[in-house]
């Protein structure tokens, strides 16, 4: 944020000083039932772990689906910050900024099917 003018509007006052920011979270079909069918939602945090925590707070039925009760990523879930799998970054401690997009995808065998982009 250094060197950047940030205008705080009323709906942003809940942003904490630790760098929590709202980011777009893209959900796979299998999780959309927990978010009124939406494919993309907003959640806040300064790390991927905080964003996922916020996601579960908003959509409680998602609890245990992405992050297991012991606080690690579900075995068959891949979480991406933009294009990078966070398991190979800082896992749940991977930092996020407000221009990042978090994508949650089930782990599948190699080879692509009809793709979105």
């Amino acid at each position: 944020m250094v060197g950047k003018t940030v205008r705080i509007t009323s709906d942003q006052v809940n942003i904490s000083l630790e760098g929590s920011v709202p980011v777009e979270v893209r959900l796979p079909t299998v999780l959309r039932q927990h978010a009124s069918g939406r494919s993309s939602v907003s959640a806040s945090g300064s790390t991927v772990g905080e964003v996922l925590q916020d996601l579960v707070q908003t959509f409680p039925s998602m609890a245990g689906q992405v992050v297991t009760p012991d606080g690690t990523l579900h075995k068959f879930v891949n979480v991406y910050r933009n294009d990078d799998d966070v398991r190979y970054l800082e896992r749940l401690d991977t930092k996020v900024s407000d221009t990042d997009v978090i994508t949650i995808l089930p782990a599948v065998a190699g080879g692509t099917g009809p793709a979105r982009r």
Binding site: P28, T29, V30, L31, Q65, H74, K75, F76, V77, D85, L105, P106, A107, V108, A109, G110, G111, T112, G113, P114, A115, R116, R117
Partner: peptide, 19 residues
């Protein structure tokens, strides 16, 4: 990785995932 896109739409449960 290629984008897995809509291919994963067929999954009914995350436990149907595959490594």
């Amino acid at each position: 990785e290629p984008p897995t896109g809509e291919m994963v739409d067929g999954l009914r449960n995350l436990d149907d995932g595959y490594i």
